[in-house]
Design a protein around this nucleic acid. Structure first.
Lengths: 239, 239
DNA sequence: TGAAACATAGTTGTCATACGAATTTGAGGA
DNA sequence: TCCTCAAATTCGTATGACAACTATGTTTCA
């Protein structure tokens, strides 16, 4: 077994066995090097891997700490990489959204309160009144995240967030298309909100499903032309 | 910006911009150090982080390569860490399973062929005829993975696999309970297979939903007593 | 007495160098 | 043409050194 594997599995075992619990500070790097029998370089590589996966957090000058090990945080570690997926992968993820977002909407319909409905309605007012893509993207994100937060499962919220982050950043070159998309998008949002306001899980779920399906349609429509891997360039909501 | 961040974002940018495509070999570490202006140690830490997330693969003596960037692989990178979740997190994930597995079953019901049904039936025969927990776990896994593979979305399959890997490894101390669980589990499997064989998405979906609900019941039942974080020790299917 | 400033020790961040281990490449010969 | 083997290339690992940052305890001053 390589030194890196030794360090990686050694650290993981310390957490799995309960020797290190969420929030605990790890022994210093020098100490761990002796304990695990690897050099500091190999140890640090292992620490970085677990940090990338959301298991550890390192603070300069202080030490490394075990994270809170929340499911939402581990899922959130994907956000660094989903932006690198090619189009084919994005469509796979969109299918997941097609299951998860209706579920979140249904749960939210059963739990949402009047204040939140008011807030969401205000967000939609802003979206419909704005022509700025930056605003649109931000508010759209807020709308959907609020819904999944109300649903009450943080892991679900985090997963939806990660999946949505990828569909978000595609540009719609044609101005007419962009306008049409926004029209449908606004209508979709209102339909979801109606379902929530009526405390009707089935209606909210159906509206959310239709909304994702619409996203999928637009992503697919612009797939053939632009199969670029990157996420750079002017971003336009397809959502 | 720290040297590590420089290296990490530099590498990520090379991929996002398309300068490095799936399957490509990265420049040598020495070359990248000059390009990015960081030491070899910092560069290697960045490479490890991306490797942990499933974006890069390193081969000793050969070089580092960009992975195929399949959504399923990126999601699979979670498998190293979901085993560290405390019980509360497992229940969150089980709720996700409750949405995803019925969806997979419904899709599979619409696409499955006679040969696969035969195979699955054979797997269930084996499960029902075996008292060995090791066999049971392996065959149960094969049964469920086959279904989600038939569903045709690799990302979905990978996600279900990751989520299931956590519910799998809990021991049922009481022999009577274990027997009762297996009885229900076997019945649940048969119900799912009936739905698939009838090409009935609704029936398959409902059966899968009930199956996950049963898992959730057992996990919850043994939650209060055992909140241990680890995954070691004799593992018994709760599934 | 209280608080601010400072000194100190401990920890992570970064770099440079060296050498071992695995792979790849190409020259040489049968 | 194919095989063998040595050399070059590349990653894997270890060590040492110092900078940057943090935490803690002490001193100093109001």
């Amino acid at each position: 077994m390589s030194a890196l594997d030794t360090a990686l599995h050694g650290l993981r075992a310390l957490i799995a066995d309960g020797a290190l619990r969420p929030g605990d500070r790890l022994p210093s790097e020098g100490e761990l090097c002796e304990t695990l029998g690897v050099s500091r370089g190999s140890l640090r590589e292992a620490i970085r891997m677990l940090a990338a996966l959301g298991v550890l957090e390192t603070r300069h000058g202080s030490g490394s700490y075990v994270s809170e090990l929340r499911a939402a945080d581990l899922i959130g570690s994907l956000s660094l990489t989903v932006g690198l997926l090619p189009m084919a992968g994005v469509l796979e993820l969109t299918e997941l959204r097609r299951v998860l977002e209706p579920h979140a909407a249904a749960l939210a319909a059963a739990r949402i309160d009047a204040d939140t409905i008011e807030t969401l309605s205000g967000v939609l007012d802003e979206i419909e009144g704005s022509d700025d893509f930056e605003d649109h993207s931000r508010l759209d994100h807020a709308f959907h995240m609020t819904i999944s937060e109300v649903a009450g499962n943080d892991a679900l919220t985090s997963l939806i967030d990660v999946l949505r982050s990828r569909s978000r950043a595609y540009r719609i070159p044609d101005a007419g298309d962009a306008a049409e998309l926004k029209l449908h998008s606004d209508a979709g949002h209102r339909a979801i909100l109606r379902g929530l306001a009526a405390a009707d899980p089935v209606a909210a779920s159906a509206a959310a499903s239709a909304h994702v399906a619409q996203t999928e349609y637009w992503v697919r429509r612009y797939t053939e032309a632009d199969t670029h891997v990157g996420t750079e360039g002017p971003a336009v909501e397809t959502d």
